[in-house]
Design a protein around this nucleic acid. Structure first.
Lengths: 110, 110
DNA sequence: AATTATTATTGTAATATTGCAATATATAAA
DNA sequence: TTTATATATTGCAATATTACAATAATAATT
């Protein structure tokens, strides 16, 4: 026990869960916010911005990257990270479809 | 170590992370999908729908409820769960603001 | 080549999550 | 009141996540 039964769910359900999970930590929300604020790619500035050690930031960046939320490219001797809006749109559209479905049906069930 | 440094982040960052985290498990995505499919409130039908034991479902429902994603009301001798679109909209709008910001700036940084 | 700066990896401790059996609770029906 | 039905709680084992120190790897600079 203890392990998620990934194989039971649809690919879409798993994909959405992976995306949401990646955003599901305040440090990673803060990283996303920071990447937006500075308008682009940042490297170890994040380490100075957040109260976390460099390996921890690196770990969070990897998780965001694995989920497809950010992408990184080599820039001089640093790595340049920025947001990949495509995957965020997937999640956004999912949420949008839910809220619009509920509104369409104007359901007042509970 | 091991504990998230919640107190450092803004309330909004923590709130968004809690919402996203709640969606960040395929079982909970499946529960949301099912609640939508049957168009309303469901009780232990979820237990028959998903490959998880009743206590596990109950636990996932509690997490969705704590995050404000679903709400439950007592209905006969069962409890009637359905989606509370308000909190999903918060997350949706956050994601929307990100993607539109990126598109506005038409940034090609990496 | 040695130094510096930036990011990644490894190992590990603390904590959190996932899942379930067993049990408890609560309400409806008999 | 007993029985059946639906949901919640507790306790526990397995697994995953979070965070960091130490170290490695990589690339630019001197």
């Amino acid at each position: 026990m203890g392990a998620t039964k990934t194989e039971f769910y649809t690919d879409e359900q798993n994909k959405l869960a992976i995306l949401a999970k990646a955003i599901g930590h305040p440090a990673r929300v803060a990283i996303i916010d920071y990447l937006l604020k500075v308008n682009a790619c940042i490297c170890d500035d994040i380490v100075n911005e957040l109260p976390l050690a460099q390996p921890t930031i690196s770990q969070h960046l990897r998780e965001l990257k694995n989920a497809g939320i950010i992408k990184g490219s080599i820039e001089k001797n640093a790595i340049c990270y920025c947001i990949d809006e495509k995957s965020l749109e997937v999640l956004q559209e999912y949420l949008g479809s839910i809220t619009s479905k509920i509104k369409d049906k104007n359901s007042k069930f509970c």
